[in-house]
Design a protein around this nucleic acid. Structure first.
Lengths: 167, 167
DNA sequence: TTAAAGTTTCAATAATTACTGAAACTTTAA
DNA sequence: TTAAAGTTTCAGTAATTATTGAAACTTTAA
């Protein structure tokens, strides 16, 4: 396999895996293109490389910036904006974990707490409902705290590395 | 909030969270209905409760069975099939973790290994590509082994509980 | 056997989600 | 200022994904 083949295979695979971390295909593809690119890319270059429209590129770049995964960069003496993604996979994982927790897990926990809090009326139905939704709530809370612990773990790992450099 | 409200809120919330663990809305809704139900339900009952067609119910039940989350049950003297889901959240989490690993993480790891294995031609481009895809591969492998460890951890937890009962 | 009860399949269609392209907007250098 | 360079927005459309419903199939009891 040569570079060009490998590159498009990587972008496609990572793109379709986007669902795993809750983002759409174009967004994931832009991110992966930036991830393997040695230099920051302009919007033109991204459009050209992925064969997607200007509008689509603009909207998805904005979302990526919103997630904190991509950032704008300015080249001296150039008006154009250039984009780069976080290049450290550990840090990338940390950001994604945090965002997913905030966007999905936390709201779910809130609803689970609400619904598991109905007053039992003595029927089997409500007893089972309360029992099961409580269990689900605890599981979700465990998953959430695990995710956050992992994220902070990675932060510590980075922090440690930085400290090592300066010690 | 009364039982009926709480019930539909739970089914909807869990349904839309389906994407988080990679299954579609109807599938997630059927699973959550079974999860809070004190008794196994027939196809008729599921259709009625969720207002979905027979075909849709049948197909999604099959997928749930395929995932190992739902099982058929027969009531003595009845021809109809009844369905139940795994009621233990820990075991549920374990099954989901395993399936996601098998269906998504493993194939991705395979591709990442492939593409990161191209021969460097001395250019910046390929060097960066190899470096970054290798890092991504390692991250994915870490995530996968973590997921599996968690899953087995939970199995051990269950095993321990069972052992406790019989000791 | 057969017909009633139940289940599965799949082509057609609906619903959802993503994408385009062109117009409107913003910024900047002269 | 102004016009060129660049970016954003969004209504319309395309692509994808989920759902229906009816016909085909399977099982079982009489």
């Amino acid at each position: 396999m040569n570079y060009t083949e490998a590159k498009s295979k990587f972008i496609n695979t990572w793109g379709s895996l986007g669902t795993l971390w809750g983002i759409n295909k174009a967004m994931a593809q832009i991110q992966s293109l930036l991830f393997i690119s040695a230099e920051p890319l302009s919007m033109e270059e991204i459009m050209e490389e992925l064969k997607i429209s200007r509008g689509n590129t603009s909207m998805n770049l904005r979302q990526l910036i919103d997630w904190g995964i991509v950032s704008k960069e300015f080249k001296a003496g150039e008006r154009k904006e250039y984009f780069t993604t976080e290049k450290d996979v550990q840090e990338l994982a940390r950001i994604i974990a945090k965002e997913r927790s905030r966007r999905e897990l936390q709201p779910t926990i809130k609803v689970l707490k609400e619904v598991s809090n109905i007053t039992p009326d003595g029927t089997n139905e409500t007893d089972e409902f309360i029992k099961q939704t409580k269990a689900m709530c605890e599981l979700t809370e465990t998953a959430d705290s695990l995710l956050n612990k992992m994220a902070n773990q990675q932060q510590n790992w980075i922090t440690k590395s930085i400290l090592k450099i300066f010690s």
